[in-house]
Each structure stands twice: as structure tokens, then as C-alpha cells.
Design a binder for these strands. Structure first.
Lengths: 354, 354
DNA sequence: TTGTATGCGTTATCAT
DNA sequence: ATGATAACGCATACAA
């Protein structure tokens, strides 16, 4: 690969088999060759270890089998699970993943896109994290075939792959209500809080609402409340980040304002763990006093309670679907959005209220 | 990139500036050009967005700035944190990461190496996970410049980057002893348990011991016991996997055998969480009855207790050092092993015994 | 069906 | 110091 060149080329095979390089090339590209020719090539192949040179292929405008992936932060389980799916599906198609972390910064995203566009990608899977107005313009992506994962409504005419968050918010809230909970708080998370909010409902009416999973889940929350004739109380909604400490602080904020909370919808386990800590410190028990339900994926190994009651997200599946969509785009097939279904999974963090 | 070709080449720049492609190439490669020539090129560069074609470079045997990374499982925080460091350091040098997950299987590792060797890598960072005898032979890596991360003693004459696990095991155990704990259990973890063990000490004398972090930590555990004149009891050592359930089961096994355990050294938080669950279910409290210390990295967001007392691993730093070592290899500089220091971090899972 | 020849975007070797 | 030109490994239009 670098030191000594022991790589064989089609030229070597041509020599060995007494054929022309064109025939070898055709053979590998699945074009018709005479059976005898194929024989000769195959027997030449036996004695050597031929690997086509991906760079040379690329120079001929061929596909390379390399897919770019831009994630906000690979060390966060949410994104690393998606990545796991991406890598697994890519391998199935003998494709490789070129990865970059953006840390949610537009600047880094543009650097990554730039680095990638100098490279040999067939296409790009992009997970934006920032506030929509900070997302690089579609032009930044030049002509790279593109799909968006984990967000909706980012670019028109580009396939998006995302979870059915509205349904998740609805299922979670309805479940808590059916368990006898009436004062259900909603703890929304943003990677980067994009605006100051008095009443989160005002955001649901804006254009960018669809692109935040928290907002979609909140819509589901509202729908469930309405359906069960429970009045909406803006004080029960807190917005914070995605970390343990965020959950801890948010829970304290809630307790300071309201003492009647008996249910809580949380965006992820990290935040839930923080909230539970704060609740317990104040003598509120989970699940007895406060039933709690999170959005998460069981494949994430790090949970404190053995089993949170949760809206299961199928993150790995999301990665798989992203690759499938991209490959559809690459082969010029029509490709619309893919919505990954969510499932309610009953665990130990909810219990019927006495 | 794929659709329409709006990519500029040095040939375009040559035309625009009235120079030859050779001069443009020289300019970009930092070779001497007349100031006037540089001027012309620079002004031509202003009106267009030139990106060198990485594939063409590769065909001329140049470096591509692409580094391969083989991890066992990207969705495990241990590896995704290392990956984070790798990506961050690579970006600093304008390098890109081609990633593959092996799921700890030798077969997949070989597929990945194979895929990579068809590709345009400058070099490879390899995190093996399996039992040493299942690790692909050094020949499988062909002539790719290589470094090993997160393991030691895998291949001779290849740089390894790993944590000072022996020191970690020593610090952890000594700390527990100084807290007044005398019956300290050691809960060793393997990604894949490689052998049946009666007494783990027999392994410490084998050649492969050094390549397992659990074994190095165990050596540190032994050293601390000896130093403090506490007799070693093989019954206090349990081997298991790296999952929550593993910790849960292991804790039950310990409790069934011994009731006097007052300290526990655990390989990672996941396992610790499982163990704590099991202990609590049986009425043993952590940290009062059993003080517990884990190996982990605080950047891992998912922990149940706010702060485990822990041996801090600096996983991201390990990724950074891996890239640095590889780049040293790439530029033909001598490069030996890098041992990442560990630090004891006092948290809430240990307390002085009354 | 197969072979010959050309070009992809670079770098490197030679002249100039 | 610079320009013309030959590679690098492959796919393909064209000729045979």
C-alpha cells in the first residue's frame, strides 16, 4: 500500500493470462466475455491477490463504494448507534464509511463537507444538529448525493430518515395518563437551545418546528392531553440540554414551581438519570410518586435502572435506512422520506397510581 | 462530485493564469516558484474554488490524508470516545477517518482490512478485541503503516497506545484498602472470555496476559494487596463480560459465595451499575457496605450515580495519541509505545469504613 | 468477442 | 524557474 508495491493491476493479469487489459476490465465489470477467456482470467487470479484500485476507478467517474457520514458527536450513544447501523449496512454492500464529527458547529460542518468534497465519496449521510438557520446551505454540499438522518424538514427534495417522534410523544403521554397520572410534565431537550421560549407552543406553529425531534414529541404530548381532556399547562414544560446535569437541574426547577407532578416525559436516559437523582434527593420516588418515560434505544448499554419504560427509537435501523436511501439516490431511483416506527416498551419506571 | 462536473483542476488554473500545469502543481506542493508566478496563480484562485483531487494524488503514490480505523463496536462508549479523539486529531491535520466495526469477529476484521487495502489509506489504527490467537496475522495488514490502540503486546515492532492499567488496578485497590476495606473483590471483564480459569493468577504468567487490560489491572490489584499484607483469595475474583447483566450476575455469584465483601474493583460503569442493582436488591448498600471503584472515563455521559469513584482512562486522549503515533510512522520517525497515564478520581461510590 | 488507444488529475522527469 | 510529457490503474469508444 505504501512501502513496496506488491499490488497487482489488471495489466499484470493481462500479462499472465495472455489477454488484453480491456478484457480483464470487462470481466470484472460483468460484461460478456467468452467462457474460455473467463477461465484464463480465473486461473490467473488464483495465484495472485488482486484488488482493484479504488482511486483509479474514481478517476474514471465510477462509484467508489465510499460513503461520507457527518455526525455531531460520535461519542454520544445516540449518534454512535446510528453510526453502527450505517457501518453495518454499508458493509453488506461492500461500502466503506468516511466519518467526521461536527460537534454541532456550522464551521466544523463546512470543514467536513469541504474535506469530503475533495475526497472520493459516492454520497453523504448528514446528521445536522444545529438550529436550522445555522445549517450549511444546500449549495455547500455541491453535487454530492445526499440524505439527512435523524432530522426532518431540513432540505426540500432530499430524503430524510427520522423516527416517528410525534407518535412517540403521543404514546408516552397517553400511557402515563392511562396509568392514572394527570399532572404530566414534559422535559424537552435541544442540543443547542435555539431561542428563548415563554410558551413552547408558539414554536410548534413556526416553520422550523418539524426539524426538531423535541418539537414533534411535544406535539404528540399535546395531542394525548387533548384527547384525554387534560388541560395544557405551560409551566409543566421545561426545555434543557441532553446531559445528566441538565436533567438534574430541570427536575429541581420543576419541583420548585410545582409539587404535584406525577408523570414525566423525558427525551433521553441521560437526562432521566439526572432528573431521578434530583427527585430522589428531595424524597420523590420514581416510579411511585413520579412515573417516568424516556425516548431511547435499548441497545444503549448505559442505563441505571435495568429498564426504563421507554419509547424505543431503533437508532441502528435508522442508520441502516439512511444507507439504503442513499443507495437508492445513487442508483437514480426515486426516494422519499423514511419514517422509522417507534414502540412503547414497558419497564420499571412507570407504575399505576394508587 | 457526481452529477455535473464543476470541479476545477490544475489544468483550469493553468489556462486561467497562462502557466503550465507543472507550475501549478509545484506551487501547491510548496516548491519554489517565482513571486510573479505565485501572484498569477493566487489571483486565478480567487475566482474559483479549487480542490485537489485526492484520487489522482493517490495514483501518484502520494499520501491521501485518509486514515483507517477498525474498532470492535462503535456504539460502545469506550470505543466511540477513542474514535472521537481520533477524528478530532485527524481533523487538526486535515486528515479523514475511514471507519469499520468488527464486532469482535476475526472474520469481520479481515473483511475490513481487505476493504481497506483496496482503498486509499495512508495507514491504519487497529483496535483488536478478540483473543490474541484470533487476531489476524501481521501479514494480513500487508504493508499498511499500522498502530494498535487500546491493547498492548499484539504485534512486535508496531506502536501500541494503551492506558496504564497496572497502575490503575494498583491505585484503585490501594485506595480501597486505605479506606479500611480488607475483603476486596475483583470483577474482571473480557469482551470474549478466552479461557476457562480456575485461578486467574495462572494467566498472569502467560505470554498473552499483557494484551488484556483486565489482566494488567489484576496485576495492579495483586501488587496493592501484597504491599498492604492482605492475603490473596481466588474466590474474590470473578470474570465476566462488559455488560450490565454481566455485572448483575457476577454480583450475585459473589454474594452466594462470600458475605464479607466490603470493596469491589470493577472494569467499567456498565458492569458496576449491574452489580449495584444486584447488591441493593439483597440489601447491601453502596458505598456504605461495599465501596466500589470503576475504570471509566467521565466523558462517558451515561452513569447512574453522579460520580463513581474511578480510575480515569482518558480515552479521547488515547485516540489522539494513536493518530499522532501513526503520523510519526508515516513520516518515518521512530515511534515506540505510548502509555496513557491514569488518575484516581474520588467520587461517591467509596467511603471510609466505620 | 477482443484488442488498441485515449483520458481521468496529478506528480515527476526531463528538457529548455 | 518553467514547460512539455510520461506515467499511475482503470474504463471505454472505437477498430478489428
Amino acid at each position: 500500500m505504501s512501502e513496496k508495491n506488491d499490488e497487482y493491476t489488471i495489466r499484470d493479469i493481462a500479462k499472465m493470462s495472455g489477454l488484453s487489459i480491456a478484457s480483464i476490465s470487462r470481466y470484472f465489470n460483468g460484461l460478456r466475455v467468452r467462457p474460455g477467456t473467463a477461465q484464463k482470467i480465473q486461473s490467473a487470479l488464483q495465484s495472485i491477490d488482486y484488488k482493484p484500485n479504488i482511486a483509479a476507478k474514481f478517476m474514471k467517474g465510477q462509484r467508489t463504494g465510499v460513503i461520507g457520514l457527518i455526525v455531531p458527536e460520535i461519542s454520544h450513544p445516540f449518534f454512535s448507534l446510528i453510526t453502527e447501523g450505517v457501518i453495518a449496512e454499508a458493509r453488506k454492500n461492500d461500502q466503506l464509511i468516511l466519518i467526521s464529527s461536527s460537534y454541532g458547529s456550522r464551521e466544523n460542518e463546512i470543514i467536513a463537507i469541504d474535506q469530503f468534497s475533495r475526497s472520493i465519496l459516492d454520497g453523504l449521510i448528514y446528521i445536522p444538529v444545529s438550529n436550522p438557520q445555522n445549517i450549511p446551505a444546500i449549495e455547500n454540499f455541491r453535487n454530492i448525493p445526499l440524505v439527512i438522518a435523524a432530522r426532518s424538514d431540513i432540505f426540500p427534495h432530499i430524503p430524510h430518515i427520522y423516527s416517528d417522534n410525534e407518535k412517540g410523544g403521543y404514546l408516552a403521554t397517553r400511557y402515563l395518563i392511562h396509568q392514572g397520572r394527570k399532572n404530566i410534565a414534559f422535559l424537552g431537550s435541544f442540543w443547542e437551545i435555539p431561542f428563548n421560549v415563554e410558551d413552547i407552543r408558539s414554536i410548534t406553529r413556526t416553520a422550523i418546528a418539524g426539524s426538531y425531534s423535541t418539537m414533534s414529541r411535544f406535539k404528540g404530548y399535546l395531542r394525548a392531553l387533548e384527547e384525554e381532556d387534560i388541560p395544557y399547562d405551560p409551566d409543566r414544560v421545561i426545555l434543557c440540554g441532553y446531559g445528566y446535569q441538565n436533567g438534574f437541574d430541570a427536575a429541581r426547577t420543576i419541583m420548585a414551581k410545582l409539587s404535584d407532578i406525577d408523570g414525566l416525559v423525558v427525551m433521553t436516559s441521560t437526562v432521566a438519570n439526572g432528573a431521578i437523582s434530583a427527585f430522589r434527593a428531595q424524597g420523590f420516588s420514581v416510579p411511585e410518586t413520579i412515573s417516568l418515560i424516556v425516548f431511547d434505544d435499548d441497545e444503549i448499554m448505559y442505563t441505571s435502572l435495568p429498564h426504563f419504560t421507554s419509547v424505543q427509537l431503533s437508532l441502528k435501523q435508522m442508520g441502516i435506512e439512511a444507507v439504503k436511501s442513499l443507495n437508492r439516490v445513487l442508483s437514480k431511483q426515486p426516494c422519499s422520506d423514511t419514517i422509522i416506527d417507534v414502540k412503547l416498551k414497558i419497564g420499571d419506571s412507570t407504575v399505576i397510581k394508587k
